[in-house]
């Protein structure tokens, strides 16, 4: 019963998260790319209650100014020229809070997309391996080994070279996530095959085969239901992996480019110990990532039951 409630809560949080990033245009006080060069690297600041209204310290002068609500097409913000960064600002004086919201758009979508592509391909290949003829099994599994072994970074670098430079950062990024998803099929496929093989031998599958059910009927009817647990487990593993893969991709110039923003690129700061030690709030996206991962897991667990 508790697990069920936990699942609902997690799904609710995730839905809220998706709604928030989609509504970033209204929720975020600034545009993600808006630079305030006179106020770089400001620490997060809380709103304060003073004389019956909420006030904040201006990021430039430190003067207290009133918070404006529902004005100028934004939920809240300080009246210009005053600046208010609830979660601090980065080295260009861009609002971290706004960037987290806008960045979530690409991160949340891309991770899901990549995981789905990988999982779908892996499932298909794994089942074909387990149920299909022996030669297909051998071909698919050896192909999987090739896929696991090759340094795909080269391919990604090559693909980048062929993509036009004026493609929008988001489009480039989606290409890479889908590619990465396509390259990641081998590991789940291997697991699905192992499971498929053992299930195939289980009595009830034999029995339905005995009743003249076709291979694909067997796959659909019995195995998919049995495989749900593993699919859920793999999904919960893959989504965070794809969220983080982007950090690695951006190392090689394959991630999301400026002015695009994503949690992965924001988290690049964790590789810079000095920057992190001096401006710890720059790692704030972690505080969003961890609950998101957690919710994905809870949901996956629930699906597995």
């Amino acid at each position: 019963m508790r697990a069920r409630a936990g699942w609902k809560l997690a799904a609710g949080v995730l839905a809220g998260m998706y709604a928030a990033v989609l509504g970033a245009g209204y929720l975020a006080p600034y545009d993600a790319t808006e630079q305030h060069r006179e106020a770089p690297l400001r620490a997060p600041a809380a709103m304060q209650f003073e004389r019956g209204r909420l006030v904040v310290a201006d990021a430039i002068s430190g003067r207290k100014v009133a918070v404006h609500w529902f004005s100028g097409g934004h939920l809240f913000g300080a009246e210009a020229p005053a600046l208010y960064f609830p979660l601090g600002s980065d080295e260009f004086g861009r609002d971290q809070f706004s960037r987290i919201l806008y960045g979530g758009r690409i991160s949340l979508m891309a991770a899901l997309l990549g995981a789905m592509v990988s999982l779908g391909l892996g499932l298909a290949a794994g089942l074909m391996s387990a149920l299909g003829p022996v030669w297909l099994d051998a071909v698919l599994m050896r192909l999987g080994e090739v896929c696991l072994a090759l340094p795909w970074l080269y391919l990604l670098l090559g693909v980048r070279a062929f993509l036009p430079l004026d493609l929008s950062p988001e489009a480039v990024f989606v290409v890479f996530v889908v590619l990465a998803g396509m390259l990641g099929w081998a590991r789940p496929a291997r697991l699905f095959r192992g499971l498929g093989l053992s299930l195939k031998q289980a009595g009830y599958v034999e029995a339905s085969r005995g009743f003249g059910a076709s291979r694909w009927y067997v796959a659909r009817r019995h195995m998919l239901s049995e495989l749900r647990g593993v699919v859920g487990t793999q999904g919960a593993l893959l989504v965070p992996q794809f969220l983080l893969a982007e950090v690695t991709l951006s190392l090689f110039g394959l991630g999301i480019n400026e002015p695009g923003v994503s949690w992965g690129t924001m988290l690049d700061v964790v590789r810079q110990p000095a920057m992190l030690a001096m401006n710890p709030w720059l790692a704030m996206p972690v505080l969003v990532l961890v609950p998101v991962f957690l919710c994905f897991q809870v949901c996956a667990d629930a699906m597995a039951r």
Partner: peptide, 11 residues
Amino acid sequence: LLVLPELLLAS
């Protein structure tokens, strides 16, 4: 362990 970003943990 799964929700801790590996890179963060490493750094």
